[in-house]
């Protein structure tokens, strides 16, 4: 236990994301309600987004927007050091990942609405019972 604590303190960000990710995974596996499963999926995605963004962070660096680059002529007056700006690549990847998560969430909600219209329930066990009762319908 004594050598575990410094490890947690050094990498506390990853511990937080892993815990968040596992909360989402548990909700997806164990929850009975389809909407709760979707919420779990969103938590999972958020954990991954935080994980990526934290990888791009550098100490003593600012956001990836080059300073004094407006207007063109001042752009090359000072050399740009990579250590002064955080890594833009994870931000770009996660920007698109957020959009994909919104899109998947929208489609999943639409499917949930259809399921509710047909079976009048979103609980997984009730759905399974109804599917067994009806059999392959129509």
């Amino acid at each position: 236990m004594t050598d575990l604590l410094p490890l947690i303190v050094a990498k506390y960000n990853y511990w937080l994301y892993v815990i968040l990710m596992m909360i989402g995974l548990y909700a997806m596996i164990a929850k009975n309600n389809l909407i709760k499963k979707l919420v779990g999926m969103n938590i999972f995605q958020t954990a991954i987004i935080l994980f990526y963004v934290s990888i791009g962070y550098k100490t003593d660096a600012t956001i990836p927007i080059i300073q004094n680059a407006h207007g063109g002529q001042g752009a090359h007056s000072a050399a740009i050091h990579a250590a002064d700006y955080i890594n833009p690549l994870p931000h770009v990847l996660m920007l698109t990942a957020i959009v994909v998560s919104v899109a998947t969430f929208g489609v999943a909600m639409a499917l949930a609405v259809r399921i509710y219209q047909r079976y009048q329930t979103l609980e997984e066990d009730e759905l399974r019972m109804r599917l067994a009762d009806i059999g392959p319908e129509k």
Binding site: A10, K11, Y12, N13, S54, I55, G56, Y57, K58, T59, A61, A82, A83, N87, P88, L89, P90
Partner: peptide, 13 residues
């Protein structure tokens, strides 16, 4: 956390 020489930050970025 915040390591400027992390593998993600030394190649393309």
């Amino acid at each position: 956390w915040g390591d400027p020489n992390s593998p993600a930050s030394i190649h393309l970025s």
